[in-house]
């Protein structure tokens, strides 16, 4: 039996539109989840190194909770279980939203990823000499100003490789969203296969999407890392 590769078919309606939608959904799902995860991870990472015991405990609990349950299970929990426990008002509002699966995926991926980012952020904060915190405070900066202007920019530079790899993980994890019926690029590929039996072509497009985006992200982040490298830091830190 012979299989004819016909990529040109994918450029016709309705497939082209589906692919465009799928690629876009994957991209903004990844970007949005990752941005939310970064903010949550930052807060939790700082809580983990806080001098306040309650905050530290909360941070530990948060990380262990979201890091140790598989993302797939977490998505199901957010999608099927959590809405059951919402107050009826909130549940009604939630169910009336247009894109419930999409927002569920954002929440699930963001919480999961934030727990992993929080650990990276905690490690980066731990790598910053204690004297940097004290120097900033001694000049009369508030704690918030210290984090905003000194610690986070410093930690951020240390963390660029980790943040990059975390983004790439998020990006690939978005494929799991198809299990709660988000039509991102992997789901799109499945749909195209079901309609046209052109599975190879469809999955090739999906794979290419992941690979090209990944390469682009790595390229941009490497450039950023080079631009933001701290001159003489190695000698300074030793």
């Amino acid at each position: 039996m012979q299989y004819n590769l016909t990529f040109s078919m994918l450029l016709t309606a309705p497939y082209l539109g589906w692919i465009a939608d799928g690629v876009l959904t994957t991209l903004h799902l990844a970007l949005l989840s990752w941005s939310v995860a970064l903010l949550l991870g930052l807060a939790v990472g700082i809580a983990r190194v806080s001098s306040n015991r309650a905050l530290r405990l909360f941070g530990t609990f948060y990380v262990e909770l979201f890091r140790n349950v598989p993302l797939l299970v977490q998505l199901f929990l957010w999608f099927y279980v959590v809405p059951e426990f919402l107050p009826s008002e909130t549940a009604r509002w939630w169910n009336r939203l247009d894109e419930v699966p999409y927002w569920t995926a954002v929440i699930g991926i963001a919480f999961y990823t934030s727990s992993r980012l929080a650990e990276q952020i905690r490690a980066a904060l731990g790598a910053i000499p204690k004297g940097q915190f004290e120097a900033a405070l001694s000049t009369g900066l508030t704690k918030l100003q210290m984090y905003r202007h000194v610690i986070i920019p410093y930690a951020g530079r240390i963390m660029i490789p980790a943040i990059t790899s975390e983004f790439l993980t998020v990006f690939k994890n978005t494929a799991l969203a198809l299990t709660i019926s988000v039509v991102e690029i992997s789901a799109t590929a499945r749909k195209i296969e079901a309609w046209s039996f052109k599975g190879i072509e469809a999955y090739t497009v999906a794979s290419a999407t992941y690979m090209l985006t990944t390469l682009a992200v790595i390229l941009v982040m490497t450039m950023l890392e080079r631009r933001l490298a701290i001159p003489g830091l190695i000698r300074w830190g030793s």
């Binding site: 004290e134 120097a135 001694s138 000049t139 009369g140 920019p153």
Partner: peptide, 15 residues
């Protein structure tokens, strides 16, 4: 702000 402090390891912000 009214009390300057100088540290053994300088603690300039490297970035």
């Amino acid at each position: 702000r009214r009390i300057g402090m100088v540290f053994q390891h300088f603690e300039l912000y490297p970035h």
